[in-house]
Amino acid sequence: MSTVADVLAGADAAPVDLTGRSGTRALRDGLARVLMWTAFAVAVVPLVWILWTVAAEGGRLLIHSTWWTNSQVGVTARRVGGGATHAIQGTLLQAGVTALISVPIGVLTAVYLVEYGRGRVARLVSFMVGILTGVPSIVAGLFIYAVFMTTFGMQRAAIFVCLALTLLMIPTIVRSTEEMLKLVPNDLREASYALGVPKWKTISAVVLPTAFSGIVTGILLGLARIMGETAPLLILGPYTKAITANLFGGNMATLPTMINQDRDQAVTMPAYDRVWAAALTLILLILVLNLLGRVIGPRSKV
């Protein structure tokens, strides 16, 4: 037995072995490392492959200025030429109108759930948003078709595409906005209440500005997601080769429907090229939105 004094003096203390690394631990470490890298490669390889193929096959047309300025009017499947303006404009217009409808509804629903919702109604709303999140896009498209075309006998139009996309976008906005609002510290709400500021003013002047950039990021990512949706477009938004801007009647082209249209005729080289080019254009549009989201995100105050 060593006394306390001995221990304190360092006597009798064999040096601890710090060099040894047990064989099994090294083995497990190596195994985990290999597994991790394999999983990473499995995830990344297809992604890089897709991007590479699309860029390689579609890049040729994108560097022509006509791709960005012309429509497909008068261009048959066997002819080279024309552009994707009609489809780019249609996609942006429909995405914009969808955002215009979904953002107020989505953000206000999230404000209700985080700031006001208590009890059964709030739980019901939250549950419904959860269900809506899981609705497949083709079901959203068919629902709108059943209501407006089958029941009310209306003609298909771009606005109905927007309505179907709204059904898909609202839940993503509600969820992302909810998360951002929850991140706003309660201290700030209390600080505002303690100044005699009413609750609605606290939410509009303190909580929402604090979460603003996070909310915008969520909206941009949601927008990027619905821009690539295809199923509702196939049901509700017939393709046209011309530039159109009428939301309430007639056909309107979008990038997904352009891809689908040209894929139908892809036995010919020009149409085949246009499929890849339209796909690359869509990827680039979504990339730009994602990058915008990244740029705005870090400015968040929460």
Binding site: D187, L188, E190, G196, V197, T210
Partner: peptide, 20 residues
């Protein structure tokens, strides 16, 4: 309560200036 809080102010444990 809003009028009460205008009359009786409060300072909290952690400094909480509005970040925006």
């Amino acid at each position: 309560p809003v009028a009460v809080r205008r009359t009786i102010g409060m300072v909290f444990q952690r400094p909480n200036p509005f970040p925006t």
